[in-house]
Design a protein around this nucleic acid. Structure first.
Lengths: 144, 144
DNA sequence: CCATTTTATGCAACTATGTTGCATTGAAAC
DNA sequence: GTTTCAATGCAACATAGTTGCATAAAATGG
C-alpha cells in the first residue's frame, strides 16, 4: 500500500536498529489500510517465517513507545495498531462497524476538530487526539 | 454526583425493570465523574452487598445494548463504562493520562467536531462519535 | 579472532479480563 | 398454589497480554 515509507529509515530515525523482526512487524502495520490487532500482525508475520507471539508483543510495545506506531483503542477486547501520524501517514479518524466489527480508516480531513477552548483551559498536556466513529458500515447496511 | 438522573425511570424508559442489581450498577456508573472499568463497578457495587462478577458483566452488556451506558475504548486491557449521552449527561470527550492511566471527562464544549465532509461522503451510518485525548494530566505534570 | 557484554528471542507459566453452560433461585403470570 | 420465565451464581473456559528465565545472536573490546 504505502509506496513512500522507508521502514528501515523510520526505525533508525528513532534510534532502533532495523533488524528483521522489527522490519517485518512495522511493514505489516504500514502496508495495511486499516489497523490490525496483535493477533492479526502475529499471524501475518508468521506467514513469512517463524516468530514468537511474545516477540510480536514486545516489538509492538517498542514501536508504540518510540512513537512509530499508535495503539488504538477498540471497543472489543483487543487493541489495534496502526502507523502513527507521519508525513506519509497523516492522522485520521477511524470508523468501527458495530455489526461486523471491521475498522476502517477515514480520510484525514473528513472530520475536523476544534480544540481552542480546550487548549485555553485544560491544565494537562494533550499529546494526541483519537477520533473514533461507530455505526454500521456500507456492507452491513446493504445486508440489512 | 448526578442530582438529576432518575435511574429507575431511565431503566424503564428502555423497557428494563428497575430491579435492584440493575439499579445498583447503573447508579454507580451515573454517580461517578469518570468512566469506570467493570472491575471498578464490581468492587463498588460489592461494598453495598453481594453480587457476582458475572452478573455485573451481564448487566453491563444489557445497559450498553439498550443504549443507557456507553462502552468506552481504552488503551489498556479493560473497557470502561460511562453514562451514554442523555439530557443530564451530554456527550463529552475523554482525556487519558499516559503516565498515571487515569481517565477524566472533559467539558462537552471543550472540543468541537465538524463532520460535514464526512456526512456528505461516507456511505455507512454513523451512530456515535468518540473523542479521546491522550497526554499527561495536571498531577503528573507537576510531579515530573 | 576470541572473550565479554548486550540485546533479541523463545518458551512456559501466569495474570487479567471477559464469556459460556448449566443449575438454582426468585419473581411474575396464570 | 403452581407454572413459567427472567435473573443470579458458580465453575469452567476463552482470549489477550505479561513476566521470568534460559538461550541465541549481535555488538563491543581486547
Amino acid at each position: 500500500m504505502c509506496q513512500r515509507c522507508n521502514y528501515a529509515e523510520l526505525l533508525e530515525s528513532c534510534g532502533l536498529e532495523p533488524i528483521p523482526n522489527r522490519m517485518r512487524v512495522l511493514e505489516v502495520i504500514g502496508e495495511n489500510a486499516s489497523p490490525l490487532s496483535a493477533q492479526d500482525i502475529f499471524m501475518t508475520v508468521s506467514r513469512t517465517g517463524g516468530i514468537n507471539r511474545v516477540t510480536v508483543y514486545r516489538i509492538l510495545d517498542l514501536l508504540v513507545e518510540k512513537g512509530l506506531v499508535d495503539r488504538l483503542s477498540s471497543p472489543g477486547r483487543s487493541q489495534m495498531y496502526g502507523m502513527a501520524p507521519n508525513p506519509n501517514h497523516p492522522a485520521h479518524p477511524h470508523f468501527h462497524c458495530r455489526t461486523c466489527g471491521a475498522v476502517q480508516c477515514l480520510q484525514p480531513e473528513s472530520v475536523k476538530v476544534e480544540m481552542e477552548t480546550l487548549e485555553r483551559t485544560f491544565a494537562g498536556e494533550v499529546q494526541a487526539v483519537e477520533i473514533r466513529l461507530e455505526g454500521i458500515c456500507r456492507n452491513c447496511l446493504k445486508r440489512a
